[in-house]
Amino acid sequence: MAREETSLIYALKRVGYAALVMLLASLVTFAALRVAPGSAVTSILDPAKTPPEVIEQYREELGLNLPLFQQYLNYVGSLLTGDFGTSLFDRKPVVDLVLGAASFTIVLALAAFVISFGLGVPAGVLSALNQGGWFDRSMRFASSALMAIPNFVLALLLVLVLGVQWRLLPVSGATGPLSLVMPALVLAAEPWALTTRVTRTATAEQLGADFARTLRARGVSRRRIHWRHILRNALSPVVSLGAVQVRTLLGYTLIVEVIFRWPGMGSQLVQSVVRRDYPVASALALLLAFVVVLASTVGDLVLRWVDPRVRTESMVVK
């Protein structure tokens, strides 16, 4: 009973902490994008051709003439009511733009996540089970190679071979399930390599553990020991890695989406930042930050649930 309570308190503390981080993150996006020079007004209206009154009126309309502090309060206030403003560029509601792009990014990131974990965990376990064998060695080679090759280089190579030379897959855009293949593979490459390695190390450690020997002595079948007992114990570093992977994947989508002209949040962020479209850029940055914070919060909570040993540690220890 007591343990139930501490778990609940832990969860509340963890969520409160995440909220604090998000509040500060909103201050950062606000400050960063306002401090960056090149006013949104001058990127829409040509200052040489527009009369100053018109520019002033436009600034007032956008609330850009208020003190920064007040602008920030307005900003947080409207965020809390779900109002992310309108794009300075094409005047569409930011929420629509961002949600439209988010669905594309979610599809891409999920595909990559499934590839990297779905293939990475079994590959890691199998490598650990026959250490030094041909499978282990080839996985080791593949993961070293995929960790070293930058994702945009890999993307260009795939485009060159599969798109230009063999014409197997579409080179850019989101024109059906086939166009998902290349971006998802590129995005999954490095996370797959990391997952394989972490799973291999964790499994290898557990293979020599006392409990595994005891189970073997009791005559429990190898398969049951490996895939049930050892994998469960080996999973906690993999779960921690998962939270980190979410962040890596989001960071990589920025560049992968631009290369493949995938209309997700990454290409939208790059575009809005170049256009100085403050509302779109800050909404996207906040959303990305929110996903990263959410992933690490969920990761911590899941870790506590999967691995009772973690429960003895204090909250700030992660």
């Binding site: 960063a32 401090v35 960056a36 960071g251 930042v273 940055a285 990305l288 930050a289 690490s296 700030v316």
Partner: peptide
């Protein structure tokens, strides 16, 4: 606690955003 918050806030943002801000600055 303070450093943890600072680390987590920093950690949540992609480098590309900061790169553009500094490029503008």
């Amino acid at each position: 606690l303070t450093t943890n918050v600072v680390i987590d806030v920093t950690w949540a943002f992609p480098a590309i955003l900061l790169a553009v801000v500094f490029a503008g600055w």
